[in-house]
Design a protein around this nucleic acid. Structure first.
Lengths: 344, 344
DNA sequence: ATTGTAGAGTGGAACGTTCCAATACGCATG
DNA sequence: CATGCGTATTGGAACGTTCCACTCTACAAT
């Protein structure tokens, strides 16, 4: 099991370790004969450069760490794709770790990344306070995905959650809804803004006293639980705005199980536009975010600091877009149904 | 940005670097006064042990690498959860990398893991040939998830894919189906066995000449494409057995779009039992695998080699279980409908 | 007084690379 | 024939830890 080192290769090829190192990094700078000898020796021995030793002397690992809150949320998978693509174009590789929706485990995932000395860190859907994350940003470039901040110490990229939420509520209001409830995900990344957007739009439309907010989270089961509460609240809304698609799916399940019709009895709207949500069976109205672009942008921000020496914080906000499908419609008993916004 | 080292801490605390090292690993072996001084100095400086340097001297990283073929497949997320849980219980941490459904990129992901000197490797849903992976297993413990092999050099854990496939076909046959088509995913992990299970059961039931196999893959779009081909084949089956749930969802979408009813016109069955598949709107009949357990078992296999010195290969096969939901029913025009197997 | 022992702390080698300054060698130039 | 120069190669110092063998001190046992 003992792995061969550069010295073993050097000995076998009859050259110095420095020459082997040269061949491994830039073969063109080495004479024909020696190059061949080294490559052959390396192959014979099954030599693989030890990135640990290399990182130690170079004081860089070439790895961008990604910490995400939930491996199950396909939203992150797309963002991660974007990050990986951008990173590998620039000679970095991405390594991923999950926070399992638990601030403590997220913290420990981040610590691990720091100890491994990743060159940059991208944190998505964080459950932690921005303040704590800022502390980390003194050691390496950090980009937050999906969370708004004006921090001077780290970068961020997200969609305008408040605007997305307002669009969602506006869409419902224009369909004639007034009793619009919102499920929120506490202080998890993005959630506070979406909630505020919901509230603002409700206020703007004169629906202040119709504001109903229920606590859930960004998962299917969180959405389901909140929906059960809504159904039991004795104050049934005609529309529900979920904090994301995963939660919306959970809510949908509860509504279906209760024998209610979507959107006949209750309209439902999510956030994220997962591929899944576009399935005909689901056809969830939702607020879309350009996921892969979000990821590319996040990687770009890290790389700018790493390779171009940028020092000042940048915060990128991209606009969300409402995707109207078939889980939203006029409220029940609405005489003037079929307005132009009605899907299908 | 320059990070403090153990020497900085030692200087500030007025002790030797060795003492600092001791405090960091086992504070109880150090005198009260010095321990406090060291901890305070470390805190003041924001010292974080450099895992790269530590790994170099210890010749271990404490990291279990996970390489999976597709970040989007929630199946892997659950398995990864299991791995992470088992690993962290034993003091290891898990780090993840995606192969993006491309054997080349998978190879490069594995190379990266090897260069980073992870202590063990778990490969899920691999697109590579087992032979190539075996080469890797000489350097560290490797466990394959979801792929059958009798290799003497690496471990594996998977469900009995052939048995699962046969159960699926048997279920359809008992409902009265004879024209049962199968979408397969080429040589991707698990697919060949499922295909063979399908064929065997078809033969056993005297349906040899009804065997129809279409090429797809383990993704939604792969399933959709194959389904389009099936619909255009001019030989419409009454049931389709997809290689996994993701592909089944793609197929479902195509069937829905074609205006056909599931299971009225065509029955559909998947493999994996994603959480998603249990949603009332989807309610996909499928073959279930104990995902988290699969992950725990995989981690266990790696850890046995790492910490207990096991040398011989172990291959764990766990039984799959058919989950009957509402995408399967009697074939159209079947007079004696509603057999006892009918769901609901 | 001598010896032994335990506890606390230290210095230096090692881990496997990269990088830099230095060397060796050939060959053209004056 | 000395000089200079470019190319190919080398040895040694880093990188930041851990680990081991060792020293030092205090104190108990003989």
């Amino acid at each position: 099991m003992k792995q061969p080192t550069i010295l073993d290769v050097a000995a076998r090829a009859g050259v110095s370790k420095s020459l082997v190192s040269l061949v491994m990094t830039d073969p063109s700078r080495v004479g024909e004969a020696n190059r061949k000898a080294v490559l052959e020796a390396a192959k014979d021995l099954g030599y693989r450069p030890n990135a640990v030793a290399r990182s130690l002397v170079q004081r860089r690992t070439g790895v961008i760490g990604i910490v995400l809150s939930d491996l199950h949320n396909p939203f992150f998978a797309d963002v991660a794709d974007g990050i990986e693509a951008a990173a590998s174009e620039r000679g970095y590789r991405a390594m991923l770790s999950s926070g399992f929706l638990d601030p403590k485990r997220e913290r420990s995932a981040i610590t691990t990344m720091l100890e491994l000395r990743v060159d940059g860190l991208i944190i998505m859907g964080s459950m932690m306070k921005v303040g704590r994350i800022e502390g980390v940003a003194t050691a390496l470039p950090v980009t937050l995905v999906g969370r708004h901040t004006r921090s001077k110490r780290l970068d961020s990229v997200c969609t305008d959650d408040a605007a997305g939420a307002r669009e969602a509520v506006a869409h419902l209001a224009e369909l004639g809804h007034t009793r619009i409830a919102h499920i929120h995900a506490g202080s998890a990344a993005g959630s506070p803004r979406r909630r505020r957007g919901y509230e603002k739009e409700m206020i703007k439309r004169g629906l202040v006293d119709r504001i109903r907010v229920f606590r859930g989270d960004f998962t299917e089961s969180g959405g389901a639980k909140a929906m059960i509460e809504i159904l039991n609240s004795g104050d049934m809304p005609t529309a529900v705005f979920a904090p994301n698609d995963a939660a919306a799916l959970g809510a949908m399940e509860v509504i279906d199980d209760a024998g209610l019709d979507i959107p006949g009895d209750i309209s439902l709207i999510g956030y994220d536009d997962l591929t899944l949500s576009g399935l005909p069976r689901i056809s969830l109205t939702t607020v879309g975010q350009p996921r892969t672009d979000l990821g590319r942008e996040a990687a770009q921000l890290v790389l700018e600091r790493l390779d171009e020496g940028r020092e000042d914080a940048r915060h990128v906000v991209v606009p969300p877009s409402l995707v109207i499908r078939s889980t939203t419609g006029p409220p029940p008993g609405d005489a003037d149904a079929q307005p132009s916004e009605d899907p299908q």
